[in-house]
Design a protein around this nucleic acid. Structure first.
Lengths: 358, 358
DNA sequence: CTGAAAGCGCTAACAC
DNA sequence: GTGTTAGCGCTTTCAG
């Protein structure tokens, strides 16, 4: 039963025991040090490091040798200070641990990488203040551009930054009180189609469980739900709708309420992936079959009984599109802010095609 | 059918149409500009910006006013150049889109945030060269510390950085040829316990499908499998084991081979979350019940029929522990590199408790 | 309480 | 081909 609890082992060695010649612990060699050691001028080192032309192979060799020997690494802070651009962009999202944002972030990173830029990202935890704090910290670090999934709805604080030339694209949700590029999914159309799908399968008493309506995507999806119901001339009852934080506890209660009582819903439209998962758990505890369509795809949805019908959005495409626009802003190719809407896709797997029961 | 395909709308406004007074488009006000406008010295502005004591309320007000008016934001590149520390740490992992790394990254971010630092992260895509490229780019930006999930197995290239004072912690897999902090899960023990669990339920012909053995975690889990089999005095046949890239295609073929033929396996141990998912899909196409235990937990595992028994590791704890150690290195509290092993947890849900069939 | 001067490590511009 | 100088925007030091 080894290794069953956390434990530590500690080799006898000490970090920094033998130091590089010419290097104090905690300080780094500079180009000046390299130049001195190689017996050349500062600028020659700069040329070698930046692979600029006009250096004799022999000189270059000597410089390279000194670089290796000293463990020199160019200090990009100084470089940035001089050049003005950092070759890095910032991404502010809600929560990196959310399976929706992982692929989005990765897509942004890939585009950044293709443009030689690094990605700094931060989670706002859906807190407008924290969003602003993060964004401004990124601006202070002089990121070249910013991809923001807004938590707040007022982005006037970004005006000086944008005017100073920080490229900015908002994703997933629109910006507030600022004229900027926006890339979003068709939340309204997707939700409307999903609900219409349930109606087409004979449902009329359809529940909607969604996020807090102050979140734009949540409001849009609710609007889609209402539109579909109205199109079918169904009067929506208040008890069919539940908006609020999407933690399992609240969603579970909301679902249970809709599913019981004298006139229970026969179908549920779940407003996002977290809601869908919780609703599935609730339905698993009921015998009466209830139809379900969820917004956002979820892993293994096809393997459940029945498979989960979803309105899928393409998180990677959202990130890619946003990042590409960002770099087009930086290229100067792009001048006028636009709003880009990406389509959603209804994936039928069984749960959305169940007929009304009860 | 509006909004069904990507489309764009473009308001008539133009970015940068009205500029802030005293600000050229694309350039930013400096402390000097603020000082001039407020009619004070440069250092006074610096004092206000950094909330240093010793400024008259009245002076402070004038400075604040100038800051607001100009949209000034301190340039941290310059600050870093002077101070030496960047208040940022780097995280290099395999793929941010992997559900295992999202929570890990988030945990690292939380710790960083608590220490006032930003997180820069990059995906190595399991490519040692790209890992090195990323790590060195982060060092050039003078991150204070580095959390690395290694793709490669030789980290001697980091020696100069570590000696220069870059705090470094390796997570999930050990470092190669360098003396540094390491935080890993108990891959060996977890796999051994998982396989022993299958043996305890009567299985003897147990398959193992894992990642490429050059990946340390994969090798350790294979070792755990072998150890459990040996403990039970079962001779493992080559056809029961399959190591290689974990894309669905290959895993599917491997699983199919084990499950058919004259002496098929009655249980499978899946080496990671991606393998588990694919194996579940394969098993869904077979009628004979086959037991399954997977390494790594997966979402909705409890809702499948049967529920999926897994050996779970705590990704967030891995990230948190690593980041905390990193900051202890930076505090100077920590001097000797250690190896920390976090326990895994067997979660029984049904699939691992099926008796042998066939 | 406030400010002038020096310099962090690099690159741009211009000498040689 | 190579080296010298100035200065990016800030903080540090030290003088008023």
């Amino acid at each position: 039963m080894d290794d069953r609890t956390a434990h530590r082992t500690s080799p006898a060695t000490h970090r920094g025991a033998d130091r590089l010649p010419g290097t104090r612990y905690g300080s780094r060699p500079t180009m000046k040090d390299v130049a001195a050691r190689a017996g050349v001028g500062l600028k020659t080192v700069s040329r070698v490091v930046n692979e600029e032309p006009g250096v004799t192979p022999e000189t270059e060799r000597r410089v390279q040798e000194a670089i290796e020997a000293l463990g020199f690494r160019r200090n990009d802070s100084a470089r940035v200070l001089r050049k003005g651009r950092t070759a890095s962009i910032g991404l502010v999202l809600e929560d990196l641990a959310d399976p929706f944002y992982g692929p989005l972030s990765r897509a942004v990173e890939e585009v950044a990488r293709a443009h030689g830029a690094l990605l700094i990202n931060g989670s706002s935890a859906e807190d407008p203040e924290r969003e602003q704090e993060l964004v401004l910290a990124l601006c202070a670090r002089r990121v070249d551009g910013l991809v923001v999934i807004p938590a707040g709805d007022d982005h006037r604080y970004l005006e000086p930054e944008v005017k100073a030339g920080v490229a900015t694209v908002f994703v997933d949700r629109p910006a507030g009180h600022i004229d900027a590029d926006v890339v979003v999914s068709d939340n309204f159309g997707g939700a409307r189609d999903g609900v219409a799908h349930l109606i087409a399968h004979g449902h009329r008493r359809i529940g909607f469980i969604g996020d807090m309506p102050r979140i734009h995507t949540a409001a849009e999806r609710l609007r889609g739900y209402r539109a579909a119901m109205e199109d079918a001339e169904i009067t929506v009852e208040d008890s069919w709708m539940s908006l609020g934080v999407t933690d399992p506890e609240r969603v579970r209660r909301a679902a249970e309420e809709m599913l019981t009582g004298p006139e229970p819903v026969t179908a549920v439209f779940a407003g996002n992936n977290r809601v869908t998962v919780t609703v599935i758990r609730v339905l698993a505890g009921h015998t009466r079959p209830v139809a379900l369509v969820g917004f956002d795809d979820i892993e293994l949805a096809d393997l459940l009984q029945p498979g989960v019908t979803v309105v899928a959005q393409d998180a990677a495409a959202l990130g890619r599109t946003a990042a590409e626009r960002l770099f087009r802003q930086l290229d100067g190719t792009l001048l006028t802010p636009e709003r880009i809407v990406l389509p959603t896709r209804l994936i039928t797997r069984g749960s959305g095609e169940l007929p009304p029961a009860g």
